[in-house]
Simulated scan of single mutants.
Amino acid sequence: NKQMTDVWRLSAIAPWEKKCGKHPTQKPLALLSRIIMASTKPGEWVLDPFCGSSTTGIAANLLRRRFLGIDQEKDYLEISKHRREELDNSHIVYEYRSKIKDIKLMNSQCPYVVNDDIDVSYRDLPF
């Protein structure tokens, strides 16, 4: 029940966010997570028509949203594929979610925003 400010102070991209490869304009996972939490509910779709290394897709998956990403650069799509494959490991999903302050905060205050009970299997997602 608070107004979101117009200036967000977030950390830069952490080294663990680049372990599958680097993209020249990659955004911090915390930034995309905040945007997705502010604009969608679990199970809803997120479209990124210029997905690059799919930080938006990773954030969407961590937040139990469905994701469709489009890009024409095969090298970046390979990075996206490897990043997505990481999410098959539940320990990595937990680790990533625990590193993003907004996810922990929203989960404690508004469980419906990051609800684990929503039936969205990572394996069923097109991303």
Rank of each mutant, 00 (worst) to 15 (best):
N1W: 08
K2H: 12
K2C: 07
Q3K: 13
T5L: 14
T5D: 10
T5Y: 04
D6W: 04
D6A: 06
V7Y: 03
L10A: 09
S11C: 03
A12C: 07
I13A: 05
I13G: 00
W16F: 15
K18N: 13
K18G: 00
K18T: 10
K19S: 04
K19V: 07
C20W: 11
G21W: 03
G21P: 05
K22L: 01
K22F: 00
K22N: 13
H23C: 06
H23Q: 10
H23T: 02
T25M: 11
T25E: 08
Q26A: 11
K27N: 10
K27M: 15
P28Q: 01
P28R: 01
L29P: 03
L29K: 03
A30F: 03
L32E: 03
S33M: 07
R34T: 12
I35A: 08
I35C: 06
I36T: 01
I36M: 05
M37E: 11
M37F: 04
T40G: 04
T40C: 14
K41Q: 13
K41S: 14
P42N: 08
E44S: 12
D48E: 14
P49D: 06
C51A: 12
C51N: 08
G52F: 03
S53K: 06
T55F: 07
T55D: 03
G57C: 06
I58P: 00
I58Y: 00
A60P: 05
L62D: 03
L62E: 01
L62Q: 02
L62M: 07
R65Y: 05
R65V: 00
R65E: 02
F67G: 05
L68C: 13
G69P: 11
G69W: 09
G69H: 10
Q72S: 15
Q72P: 00
E73K: 11
E73A: 14
K74D: 15
D75L: 06
D75E: 14
Y76F: 15
L77Y: 01
E78S: 13
I79V: 15
K81T: 12
K81Y: 14
H82F: 11
R84G: 05
R84C: 09
E85R: 13
D88H: 08
D88Y: 10
N89Q: 06
N89H: 08
S90W: 07
H91V: 02
Y94G: 02
E95K: 10
Y96A: 11
R97W: 12
S98E: 13
S98I: 01
S98G: 03
I100R: 02
I100T: 00
K101H: 12
K101V: 05
D102I: 15
I103M: 05
I103Y: 02
L105Q: 11
L105D: 13
S108L: 08
Q109L: 03
Q109E: 11
Q109S: 04
C110Q: 14
Y112I: 00
V113D: 03
V113W: 05
V114K: 04
D116F: 06
D117C: 04
V120N: 12
V120T: 09
V120H: 08
S121T: 00
S121A: 14
R123E: 15
D124E: 12
L125H: 00
P126F: 02
F127P: 00
